[in-house]
Design a protein around this nucleic acid. Structure first.
Lengths: 186, 186
DNA sequence: TGCATACTGTACCTATCGGTACAGAGATTG
DNA sequence: CAATCTCTGTACCGATAGGTACAGTATGCA
Protein backbone atom coordinates (compact mmCIF):
# COMPACT_ATOMS: atom_id res chain seq x y z
CA UNK A 1 0.00 0.00 0.00
CA UNK A 2 1.13 3.49 -0.77
CA UNK A 3 -0.27 6.82 0.30
CA UNK A 4 -0.73 9.44 -2.39
CA UNK A 5 -0.79 13.06 -1.30
CA UNK A 6 -1.86 16.34 -2.78
CA UNK A 7 -0.20 19.66 -2.05
CA UNK A 8 -3.16 20.65 0.07
CA UNK A 9 -2.63 17.68 2.38
CA UNK A 10 1.03 18.39 2.86
CA UNK A 11 1.00 22.04 3.92
CA UNK A 12 -0.60 21.52 7.36
CA UNK A 13 1.85 18.72 8.13
CA UNK A 14 4.74 21.00 7.21
CA UNK A 15 3.24 23.78 9.29
CA UNK A 16 3.40 21.73 12.47
CA UNK A 17 7.02 20.78 11.85
CA UNK A 18 8.18 24.32 11.07
CA UNK A 19 6.31 25.49 14.13
CA UNK A 20 8.07 23.06 16.43
CA UNK A 21 11.55 23.11 14.95
CA UNK A 22 11.83 26.57 13.42
CA UNK A 23 12.98 27.25 9.88
CA UNK A 24 16.63 26.36 10.35
CA UNK A 25 15.82 23.45 12.64
CA UNK A 26 13.56 21.86 10.03
CA UNK A 27 15.45 19.53 7.71
CA UNK A 28 14.11 17.53 4.81
CA UNK A 29 15.03 14.32 6.57
CA UNK A 30 13.06 15.36 9.65
CA UNK A 31 10.08 16.10 7.45
CA UNK A 32 10.30 12.67 5.85
CA UNK A 33 10.81 11.05 9.24
CA UNK A 34 7.72 12.66 10.75
CA UNK A 35 5.37 12.54 7.80
CA UNK A 36 6.53 9.63 5.68
CA UNK A 37 6.64 11.94 2.67
CA UNK A 38 9.86 11.54 0.70
CA UNK A 39 11.97 14.06 -1.13
CA UNK A 40 10.50 13.07 -4.46
CA UNK A 41 7.04 14.15 -3.38
CA UNK A 42 8.23 17.24 -1.53
CA UNK A 43 10.14 18.61 -4.51
CA UNK A 44 7.26 17.72 -6.77
CA UNK A 45 4.89 19.92 -4.73
CA UNK A 46 7.45 22.58 -3.85
CA UNK A 47 10.03 22.91 -6.62
CA UNK A 48 11.48 25.87 -4.77
CA UNK A 49 12.52 23.60 -1.94
CA UNK A 50 12.45 24.39 1.74
CA UNK A 51 11.87 28.09 1.23
CA UNK A 52 8.79 27.44 -0.90
CA UNK A 53 7.50 25.00 1.70
CA UNK A 54 7.75 27.62 4.43
CA UNK A 55 6.19 30.20 2.13
CA UNK A 56 3.23 27.93 1.49
CA UNK A 57 2.84 27.36 5.21
CA UNK A 58 2.81 31.09 5.95
CA UNK A 59 0.31 31.66 3.14
CA UNK A 60 -2.01 29.02 4.53
CA UNK A 61 -1.81 30.41 8.04
CA UNK A 62 -2.46 33.88 6.68
CA UNK A 63 -5.50 32.64 4.77
CA UNK A 64 -6.90 30.98 7.89
CA UNK A 65 -6.57 34.16 9.94
CA UNK A 66 -8.01 36.26 7.14
CA UNK A 67 -11.08 34.06 6.98
CA UNK A 68 -11.59 33.28 10.65
CA UNK A 69 -10.50 36.51 12.28
CA UNK A 70 -9.62 39.50 10.09
CA UNK A 71 -12.65 39.48 7.80
CA UNK A 72 -15.19 39.19 10.63
CA UNK A 73 -13.39 42.00 12.46
CA UNK A 74 -13.66 44.22 9.41
CA UNK A 75 -17.17 43.36 8.29
CA UNK A 76 -19.30 41.76 10.96
CA UNK A 77 -20.82 43.07 14.15
CA UNK A 78 -17.86 44.47 16.07
CA UNK A 79 -18.69 43.04 19.47
CA UNK A 80 -19.40 39.58 18.13
CA UNK A 81 -16.31 39.56 15.93
CA UNK A 82 -14.08 40.54 18.84
CA UNK A 83 -15.59 37.84 21.04
CA UNK A 84 -15.11 35.33 18.25
CA UNK A 85 -11.49 36.44 17.89
CA UNK A 86 -10.72 35.53 21.48
CA UNK A 87 -12.19 32.07 21.28
CA UNK A 88 -10.62 31.43 17.88
CA UNK A 89 -7.22 32.60 19.05
CA UNK A 90 -7.43 30.44 22.14
CA UNK A 91 -8.40 27.41 20.06
CA UNK A 92 -5.89 28.04 17.30
CA UNK A 93 -2.95 28.31 19.68
CA UNK A 94 -4.25 25.34 21.68
CA UNK A 95 -4.53 27.42 24.84
CA UNK A 96 -0.83 28.19 24.64
CA UNK A 97 0.33 24.73 23.56
CA UNK A 98 1.06 25.88 20.04
CA UNK A 99 3.21 28.85 19.09
CA UNK A 100 2.79 31.48 16.40
CA UNK A 101 4.92 30.45 13.44
CA UNK A 102 4.87 33.95 12.00
CA UNK A 103 6.00 35.52 15.25
CA UNK A 104 8.75 32.94 15.67
CA UNK A 105 10.04 33.58 12.16
CA UNK A 106 10.15 37.30 12.94
CA UNK A 107 12.64 36.83 15.74
CA UNK A 108 15.70 35.47 13.99
CA UNK A 109 17.36 35.82 10.62
CA UNK A 110 14.53 33.84 9.00
CA UNK A 111 12.70 37.17 8.98
CA UNK A 112 14.82 38.33 6.04
CA UNK A 113 13.35 35.61 3.83
CA UNK A 114 9.72 36.33 4.61
CA UNK A 115 9.66 39.89 5.93
CA UNK A 116 6.89 41.03 3.60
CA UNK A 117 4.51 38.21 4.53
CA UNK A 118 5.36 38.52 8.22
CA UNK A 119 4.73 42.25 8.30
CA UNK A 120 1.51 41.82 6.37
CA UNK A 121 0.10 39.21 8.70
CA UNK A 122 0.50 41.45 11.72
CA UNK A 123 -0.40 44.76 10.13
CA UNK A 124 -3.64 43.31 8.79
CA UNK A 125 -4.48 41.83 12.17
CA UNK A 126 -3.95 45.19 13.87
CA UNK A 127 -5.85 47.09 11.19
CA UNK A 128 -8.81 44.72 11.31
CA UNK A 129 -9.02 44.85 15.09
CA UNK A 130 -8.66 48.62 15.00
CA UNK A 131 -11.55 48.85 12.57
CA UNK A 132 -13.77 46.75 14.83
CA UNK A 133 -12.88 48.83 17.87
CA UNK A 134 -13.72 52.06 16.07
CA UNK A 135 -17.05 50.69 14.95
CA UNK A 136 -17.64 49.77 18.59
CA UNK A 137 -17.15 53.37 19.61
CA UNK A 138 -13.44 53.90 20.23
CA UNK A 139 -11.65 56.94 18.90
CA UNK A 140 -9.09 56.21 16.20
CA UNK A 141 -6.10 56.81 18.40
CA UNK A 142 -7.37 54.70 21.27
CA UNK A 143 -8.42 51.91 18.91
CA UNK A 144 -5.01 51.77 17.29
CA UNK A 145 -3.22 51.59 20.64
CA UNK A 146 -5.53 48.88 21.95
CA UNK A 147 -5.26 46.80 18.80
CA UNK A 148 -1.49 46.93 18.91
CA UNK A 149 -1.52 46.03 22.57
CA UNK A 150 -3.71 42.98 22.01
CA UNK A 151 -1.74 41.55 19.11
CA UNK A 152 1.51 42.19 20.93
CA UNK A 153 0.05 40.78 24.13
CA UNK A 154 -0.93 37.53 22.43
CA UNK A 155 2.60 37.07 21.12
CA UNK A 156 4.08 37.78 24.52
CA UNK A 157 1.71 35.37 26.18
CA UNK A 158 2.78 32.63 23.79
CA UNK A 159 6.45 33.24 24.51
CA UNK A 160 5.99 33.39 28.26
CA UNK A 161 3.69 30.43 28.60
CA UNK A 162 6.03 28.26 26.58
CA UNK A 163 9.06 29.52 28.48
CA UNK A 164 7.41 28.65 31.78
CA UNK A 165 5.81 25.50 30.44
CA UNK A 166 2.56 26.77 31.89
CA UNK A 167 -0.47 27.08 29.66
CA UNK A 168 -2.49 28.93 32.28
CA UNK A 169 -0.24 31.94 31.68
CA UNK A 170 -1.63 32.09 28.16
CA UNK A 171 -5.28 31.68 29.01
CA UNK A 172 -5.00 34.18 31.87
CA UNK A 173 -3.32 36.75 29.60
CA UNK A 174 -6.04 36.31 27.03
CA UNK A 175 -8.71 36.98 29.64
CA UNK A 176 -6.95 40.11 30.84
CA UNK A 177 -6.66 41.43 27.30
CA UNK A 178 -10.27 40.60 26.51
CA UNK A 179 -11.46 42.44 29.61
CA UNK A 180 -9.42 45.47 28.66
CA UNK A 181 -11.06 45.65 25.24
CA UNK A 182 -14.45 45.14 26.81
CA UNK A 183 -13.89 48.00 29.23
CA UNK A 184 -12.78 50.32 26.44
CA UNK A 185 -15.78 49.56 24.31
CA UNK A 186 -18.69 49.73 26.69
CA UNK B 1 49.63 40.26 14.58
CA UNK B 2 47.35 37.88 16.34
CA UNK B 3 44.52 38.48 18.76
CA UNK B 4 44.42 36.39 21.90
CA UNK B 5 41.06 36.00 23.58
CA UNK B 6 39.78 34.93 26.95
CA UNK B 7 36.50 33.16 27.51
CA UNK B 8 35.07 36.35 28.95
CA UNK B 9 35.69 38.21 25.70
CA UNK B 10 34.08 35.56 23.58
CA UNK B 11 30.70 35.15 25.28
CA UNK B 12 29.25 38.55 24.30
CA UNK B 13 30.31 38.02 20.70
CA UNK B 14 28.58 34.66 20.67
CA UNK B 15 25.52 36.20 22.28
CA UNK B 16 25.01 38.59 19.42
CA UNK B 17 25.31 35.83 16.84
CA UNK B 18 22.92 33.44 18.60
CA UNK B 19 20.51 36.33 19.00
CA UNK B 20 20.50 37.12 15.30
CA UNK B 21 20.65 33.64 13.84
CA UNK B 22 18.98 31.49 16.50
CA UNK B 23 20.47 28.31 17.91
CA UNK B 24 20.05 26.15 14.82
CA UNK B 25 20.94 28.97 12.48
CA UNK B 26 24.25 29.56 14.21
CA UNK B 27 27.05 27.45 12.74
CA UNK B 28 30.66 27.31 13.80
CA UNK B 29 31.74 28.63 10.43
CA UNK B 30 29.45 31.65 10.81
CA UNK B 31 30.93 32.29 14.22
CA UNK B 32 34.44 32.20 12.81
CA UNK B 33 33.39 34.34 9.87
CA UNK B 34 31.89 37.06 12.07
CA UNK B 35 34.37 37.08 14.92
CA UNK B 36 37.62 35.79 13.47
CA UNK B 37 37.77 33.21 16.25
CA UNK B 38 38.66 29.77 14.93
CA UNK B 39 37.48 26.35 15.98
CA UNK B 40 40.64 25.74 17.97
CA UNK B 41 39.88 28.62 20.29
CA UNK B 42 36.18 27.94 20.47
CA UNK B 43 36.62 24.33 21.52
CA UNK B 44 39.33 25.37 23.93
CA UNK B 45 36.91 27.69 25.75
CA UNK B 46 33.84 25.53 25.29
CA UNK B 47 34.78 21.84 25.19
CA UNK B 48 31.09 21.00 25.13
CA UNK B 49 30.77 22.62 21.73
CA UNK B 50 27.86 24.65 20.48
CA UNK B 51 25.55 23.67 23.31
CA UNK B 52 28.05 24.87 25.92
CA UNK B 53 28.49 28.11 24.00
CA UNK B 54 24.78 28.79 24.11
CA UNK B 55 24.65 27.79 27.76
CA UNK B 56 27.38 30.27 28.58
CA UNK B 57 25.54 32.98 26.67
CA UNK B 58 22.31 32.34 28.58
CA UNK B 59 24.20 32.33 31.88
CA UNK B 60 25.78 35.68 31.08
CA UNK B 61 22.49 37.23 30.08
CA UNK B 62 20.92 35.87 33.24
CA UNK B 63 23.70 37.35 35.36
CA UNK B 64 23.27 40.74 33.73
CA UNK B 65 19.54 40.80 34.42
CA UNK B 66 20.06 39.57 37.95
CA UNK B 67 22.46 42.40 38.66
CA UNK B 68 20.84 45.22 36.72
CA UNK B 69 17.17 44.44 37.19
CA UNK B 70 16.15 41.58 39.49
CA UNK B 71 18.27 42.46 42.50
CA UNK B 72 17.25 46.13 42.58
CA UNK B 73 13.61 45.07 42.23
CA UNK B 74 13.94 42.79 45.21
CA UNK B 75 16.06 44.97 47.47
CA UNK B 76 16.02 48.65 46.55
CA UNK B 77 13.35 51.30 46.74
CA UNK B 78 10.45 49.83 44.77
CA UNK B 79 9.55 52.93 42.78
CA UNK B 80 13.10 53.66 41.79
CA UNK B 81 13.86 50.04 40.91
CA UNK B 82 10.81 49.86 38.67
CA UNK B 83 11.74 53.10 36.94
CA UNK B 84 15.27 51.81 36.48
CA UNK B 85 13.89 48.57 35.04
CA UNK B 86 12.12 50.42 32.25
CA UNK B 87 15.14 52.41 31.18
CA UNK B 88 17.43 49.38 31.47
CA UNK B 89 15.06 47.22 29.46
CA UNK B 90 14.76 49.88 26.79
CA UNK B 91 18.54 50.24 26.59
CA UNK B 92 19.27 46.53 26.72
CA UNK B 93 16.93 45.72 23.87
CA UNK B 94 18.14 48.74 21.93
CA UNK B 95 14.66 50.23 21.82
CA UNK B 96 13.42 47.13 20.02
CA UNK B 97 16.41 46.66 17.74
CA UNK B 98 17.62 43.66 19.68
CA UNK B 99 15.57 40.62 20.58
CA UNK B 100 15.41 38.53 23.72
CA UNK B 101 17.57 35.46 23.18
CA UNK B 102 15.91 33.60 26.03
CA UNK B 103 12.44 34.25 24.67
CA UNK B 104 13.48 33.22 21.18
CA UNK B 105 14.96 29.96 22.45
CA UNK B 106 11.68 29.26 24.24
CA UNK B 107 9.71 29.22 21.02
CA UNK B 108 11.16 26.30 19.11
CA UNK B 109 12.69 22.94 19.92
CA UNK B 110 15.79 24.68 21.30
CA UNK B 111 13.74 25.03 24.46
CA UNK B 112 14.27 21.35 25.26
CA UNK B 113 18.01 21.90 25.63
CA UNK B 114 17.78 24.85 27.99
CA UNK B 115 14.33 24.64 29.53
CA UNK B 116 15.53 24.96 33.11
CA UNK B 117 17.57 28.12 32.47
CA UNK B 118 14.80 29.61 30.32
CA UNK B 119 12.13 29.02 32.94
CA UNK B 120 14.36 30.39 35.65
CA UNK B 121 15.13 33.61 33.83
CA UNK B 122 11.45 34.46 33.47
CA UNK B 123 10.22 33.21 36.81
CA UNK B 124 12.85 35.25 38.63
CA UNK B 125 11.98 38.33 36.63
CA UNK B 126 8.30 37.97 37.49
CA UNK B 127 8.99 37.21 41.14
CA UNK B 128 11.32 40.18 41.52
CA UNK B 129 8.88 42.57 39.88
CA UNK B 130 6.06 41.12 41.96
CA UNK B 131 8.04 41.75 45.11
CA UNK B 132 8.66 45.38 44.17
CA UNK B 133 5.00 45.93 43.38
CA UNK B 134 3.91 44.52 46.71
CA UNK B 135 6.37 46.74 48.55
CA UNK B 136 4.88 49.61 46.58
CA UNK B 137 1.45 48.81 47.94
CA UNK B 138 -0.12 46.26 45.60
CA UNK B 139 -1.93 43.25 46.94
CA UNK B 140 -0.25 39.93 46.19
CA UNK B 141 -2.73 38.85 43.60
CA UNK B 142 -2.71 42.14 41.74
CA UNK B 143 1.09 42.34 41.87
CA UNK B 144 1.47 38.85 40.42
CA UNK B 145 -0.90 39.59 37.55
CA UNK B 146 0.78 42.90 36.76
CA UNK B 147 4.27 41.42 36.86
CA UNK B 148 3.28 38.64 34.49
CA UNK B 149 1.62 41.14 32.20
CA UNK B 150 4.72 43.32 32.04
CA UNK B 151 7.20 40.55 31.34
CA UNK B 152 4.86 39.04 28.77
CA UNK B 153 4.20 42.46 27.29
CA UNK B 154 7.90 43.13 26.79
CA UNK B 155 8.30 39.85 24.92
CA UNK B 156 5.31 40.58 22.74
CA UNK B 157 6.55 44.07 21.99
CA UNK B 158 9.88 42.63 20.84
CA UNK B 159 8.16 40.17 18.52
CA UNK B 160 5.77 42.71 17.08
CA UNK B 161 8.27 45.52 16.60
CA UNK B 162 10.64 43.19 14.80
CA UNK B 163 7.84 41.73 12.71
CA UNK B 164 6.76 45.18 11.61
CA UNK B 165 10.30 46.50 11.39
CA UNK B 166 9.12 49.41 13.51
CA UNK B 167 10.98 50.22 16.70
CA UNK B 168 8.38 52.74 17.80
CA UNK B 169 6.05 49.83 18.49
CA UNK B 170 8.46 48.69 21.16
CA UNK B 171 9.02 52.04 22.81
CA UNK B 172 5.30 52.80 22.74
CA UNK B 173 4.46 49.45 24.33
CA UNK B 174 7.01 50.05 27.06
CA UNK B 175 5.43 53.40 27.86
CA UNK B 176 1.97 51.89 28.06
CA UNK B 177 3.17 49.16 30.40
CA UNK B 178 5.07 51.62 32.56
CA UNK B 179 2.00 53.83 32.91
CA UNK B 180 -0.10 50.85 33.91
CA UNK B 181 2.29 49.96 36.72
CA UNK B 182 2.41 53.57 37.79
CA UNK B 183 -1.37 53.76 37.98
CA UNK B 184 -1.57 50.58 40.02
CA UNK B 185 1.01 51.74 42.50
CA UNK B 186 0.02 55.30 43.30
C1' DT C 1 66.14 32.01 30.84
C1' DG C 2 63.42 28.04 30.87
C1' DC C 3 59.24 25.83 31.46
C1' DA C 4 54.44 25.14 31.96
C1' DT C 5 50.12 26.82 30.66
C1' DA C 6 46.85 29.18 27.64
C1' DC C 7 45.55 29.89 23.35
C1' DT C 8 45.30 29.30 18.08
C1' DG C 9 45.36 27.47 13.15
C1' DT C 10 45.10 23.63 10.13
C1' DA C 11 43.99 19.33 8.60
C1' DC C 12 40.87 15.96 8.89
C1' DC C 13 36.67 12.99 10.25
C1' DT C 14 31.86 11.33 9.56
C1' DA C 15 27.10 12.65 9.19
C1' DT C 16 23.91 15.33 7.33
C1' DC C 17 22.47 19.31 4.81
C1' DG C 18 19.48 21.08 0.68
C1' DG C 19 18.93 19.86 -3.86
C1' DT C 20 18.81 17.10 -8.52
C1' DA C 21 17.85 13.31 -11.79
C1' DC C 22 15.10 9.98 -13.17
C1' DA C 23 12.76 5.70 -13.72
C1' DG C 24 8.66 3.60 -12.28
C1' DA C 25 3.98 3.21 -10.17
C1' DG C 26 -1.12 4.51 -10.22
C1' DA C 27 -4.71 6.74 -11.55
C1' DT C 28 -7.15 9.49 -15.37
C1' DT C 29 -8.50 10.31 -19.77
C1' DG C 30 -9.15 9.55 -24.79
C1' DC D 1 -6.29 -0.49 -24.30
C1' DA D 2 -2.95 3.05 -24.86
C1' DA D 3 -1.30 7.36 -23.76
C1' DT D 4 -0.81 10.81 -20.38
C1' DC D 5 -0.27 12.94 -16.15
C1' DT D 6 0.52 13.02 -11.22
C1' DC D 7 2.93 11.41 -7.71
C1' DT D 8 6.75 8.62 -5.37
C1' DG D 9 11.24 6.18 -4.07
C1' DT D 10 16.05 5.77 -4.75
C1' DA D 11 20.43 6.94 -5.89
C1' DC D 12 23.22 10.42 -6.16
C1' DC D 13 25.70 15.31 -5.79
C1' DG D 14 28.77 18.92 -3.67
C1' DA D 15 28.75 21.68 0.39
C1' DT D 16 28.65 22.22 5.02
C1' DA D 17 27.45 20.67 9.58
C1' DG D 18 29.57 19.77 14.41
C1' DG D 19 33.47 17.81 16.29
C1' DT D 20 38.49 15.92 17.03
C1' DA D 21 43.60 15.83 16.97
C1' DC D 22 47.50 18.02 17.40
C1' DA D 23 51.50 20.76 16.45
C1' DG D 24 52.72 25.43 16.96
C1' DT D 25 52.86 29.98 19.12
C1' DA D 26 52.40 33.32 22.80
C1' DT D 27 52.34 34.38 27.51
C1' DG D 28 53.01 34.44 32.49
C1' DC D 29 55.76 32.95 36.10
C1' DA D 30 59.90 30.84 38.60
Amino acid sequence: MKTVYERTDVVPLLAEIFRELGYEGTSLSRITERTGIGKGSLYHFFPGGKEEMASAVIAEIDAWFEHAIYRPLRNDDAGKAIAAMWTNVNDYFRSGGRICLVGAFALDDTRERFSAAIGDYFIRWIDALCSALMRAGCTGEKAQALAEECVSGIQGALVLSRALGDKTVFTRSLETLAKRLDAAVR
